[in-house]
Nucleic acid binder design. Structure first.
Lengths: 302, 302
DNA sequence: GACCGAAACGTCCAAATCGTCCAATTAATG
DNA sequence: CATTAATTGGACGATTTGGACGTTTCGGTC
């Protein structure tokens, strides 16, 4: 379990915000402890790097990945991550929340996995503990805000400066649904999949989606439903929306825990997912972002 | 990139319009925070330098050298900025929104000014045009989301890695008030003023504030009211909250366009402001961050 | 086991930064 | 107006940094 977490000089350099040559020199001078492989490659312990940062006032540029490694003992099991996230949210520990979420993403956990198996479970449990009175409203609110802040930060890093060639997606949550996180995560998953995405946010009348459809001409429409205030009205308005989307050749992806089987069976849609992994998979199937083939040595050790 | 960016003393000196020796001395005197490498080279965070630019009164600002995420534009008249922001929000031009807000802030427009005279007017006008049907709900939603995203990004740059010595503030909006932006901006103004701030967000029962009061022991409580759903209930619960805050020696700052004169006259409070500049001024009066000294030889332009 | 591309190695060196010293400049004071 | 204390910023040699380079190691694939 407590397997030692090694990183390369390049990773340490990135985390510390210095050049690779400098890290190499520091190791050779004994400032930074490290092991060497038979071939002479330096292997630094995450804990050593973090200790250096904590004890001296060394520069620290991006420690999120490293801190995650220490806090979770290198564990990347979503269930454990979810538990740790929940605990951090309840404590209101902004630092831990950030390193958990940013760090997981940085160290290769897919955004869909993060959303479906880490963030969603943690938030659901947080809501549950609030309902049963185990924690106060105040804790729940603080946790939700913390999660939102962190995700907006992560979203900023996902946004590509170059939009050309990226298909456009539009989405949001219907009227009466005030839950922010679900649609935000959907937007992020789409950005991660190489799309342009515009989130109209919670509490958006379905009529507005039609407006967006005609004005923005997206290739995909997502609708995330967490709470369904007026089911019948939603269904009737949704059918009109779907027809219009179909005529325009726009894929409609629906999801969210507000869509029970009973509701969904009365709805036409292009694709449905109880989580975001389906949205991600669908988006990737429609648009293949240019990617380098994966050859040679991978950058991470498990 | 929202990642922290380091610059050297020379770059900071150029940006601040002072000599390199001066920057080095300021760092050593603790006026300007910095990290040091093993070899003694100082590494300054762009955010820290910008903070100093904003708080001090510098003869010459050349921020072009700093690798800012956005190019700063010349315009600094709030009225014009508000108009440009409104236009960008209506167009859904994410890039323009971002460079307007980030750029203004980076080039020295105070956050309070930005909030009260640029963002608030633009958002009010956006809401107005929606009500009169000039623009669709969709445009209003997209604009609001865009503004939120951008502000969350900016907030990330305001958060100090080092919380020690900073007084704590807690705040939010009361039950029935779903407006996110106001309280978010309040949080940011407090962060900018050198506080730690926790935003409980919209739709927070006043009871929860009492919970936060006893658990977090803040020095300041802000309550931002945009919509007042149940006036009488708000007032009665508020009075209990205020009494508790007073007993604990916590300052209570209230504001927001939901607080009409009639309501406010029935409320006790430590400080009130129709905008955020009063909150900022109050916060700064309670806690002074380190400042640049005032005497000495001024720099000459070359 | 041979092959391959990515990543890390060692070496070198120009450019940047360091600490120190001190003349120049300004605000405050008598 | 002269004096004093505070502050600046340039100059100096010594030290540190980090990018470029060709070579070697690593780990996955065939």
């Amino acid at each position: 379990m407590t397997q030692p977490q090694y990183i390369s000089t390049a990773e340490a350099a990135r985390a510390l915000g210095v050049g690779v040559s400098t890290v190499k020199r520091w190791v050779d001078e004994g400032i930074l402890p490290a092991h060497k492989t038979a071939g002479g490659h330096r292997k630094l312990l995450v804990a050593d790097v973090l200790r250096l940062v904590r004890e001296g006032d060394f520069p620290q540029r991006d420690l999120s990945g490293l801190q995650l490694a220490v806090e979770t003992q290198g564990q990347r099991d979503p269930k454990i991550l979810a538990q740790q996230l929940l605990s951090a949210l309840k404590r209101g520990d902004a630092h831990a929340v950030r390193s958990l979420i940013h760090g997981s993403y940085a160290s290769g956990v897919a955004l869909e996995t993060l959303a479906d198996f880490v963030i969603a479970p943690a938030m659901i449990q947080l809501g549950h503990e609030w309902e049963t009175g185990e924690i106060g409203v105040f804790h729940e609110h603080r946790g939700t805000r913390l999660c939102q802040s962190t995700l907006y930060e992560l979203k900023a890093t996902l946004e590509a400066p170059d939009d050309r060639g990226r298909p456009l997606a539009v989405g949001g949550s219907p009227e009466g649904d005030y839950y922010v996180l679900a649609s935000l995560l959907a937007e992020m998953v789409l950005l991660d999949a190489g799309w342009q995405a515009i989130d109209l946010g919670p509490h958006t009348p379905l009529v507005s989606f039609r407006q967006a459809l005609s004005e923005l001409r997206p290739r995909l429409l997502w609708i995330s439903v967490s709470d369904l205030a007026d089911r019948d009205r939603f269904l009737s308005e949704y059918r009109v929306l779907y027809e219009e989307a179909e005529r325009a050749g726009v894929a409609v992806v629906v999801g969210g825990r507000g869509l029970t089987d009973a509701v969904r069976s009365a709805m036409p849609y292009t694709c449905h997912g109880d989580g975001l992994r389906h949205l991600g998979a669908f988006a990737r199937s429609q648009h293949r972002p240019p990617r380098r083939p994966k050859r040679g040595r991978p950058s991470h050790n498990d």
